[in-house]
Design a protein around this nucleic acid. Structure first.
Length: 115
DNA sequence: ATTCTCACA
DNA sequence: TGTGAGAA
């Protein structure tokens, strides 16, 4: 294996490895090449809001860093923060609809196979 | 040394 | 969006 396969399989919630490692705002800003102030803006605008630890400092997870990359792609293309928020809302909407569809599909398979 | 909030241009 | 003051 060339990659650290430490991925959990069946976890009972949003408590995965991608949510565990927390980066400081400084690390993330260096990693993404954007000023800390920009990260704080994103948090204030409810686009990517990291958890806070002890003294109220932002702690970014891997997942949030990835979300940040997506946001940067959009803003680089000229999408405003308000627009990004809408894109994110639509993205969540699609996910929930996909889940709902998966559920309906499962129910339908029961009927179809017993018909 | 870092990060936080708030304010200003 | 970037910068700086002042506190933690």
């Amino acid at each position: 294996m060339t990659e650290p396969t430490n991925r959990k399989q069946a976890e009972g919630g949003p408590l995965q490895d991608d949510d565990a490692p927390f980066y400081t705002i400084g690390q993330v800003s260096a990693l993404l090449g954007i000023p800390p102030a920009a990260l704080r803006r994103l948090d204030d605008q409810d686009i990517v809001s990291p958890e806070r630890s002890d003294g109220g400092q932002r702690r970014y997870s891997r997942l949030e860093v990835e979300q940040l990359r997506e946001v940067l792609d959009l803003t680089d293309e000229g999408v405003t923060l308000a627009g990004v928020r809408k894109v994110l809302a639509l993205r969540r909407r699609v996910e929930s609809l996909e889940d709902e569809l998966a559920g309906l599909r499962g129910r339908d398979e029961q009927q179809t196979s017993s018909a």
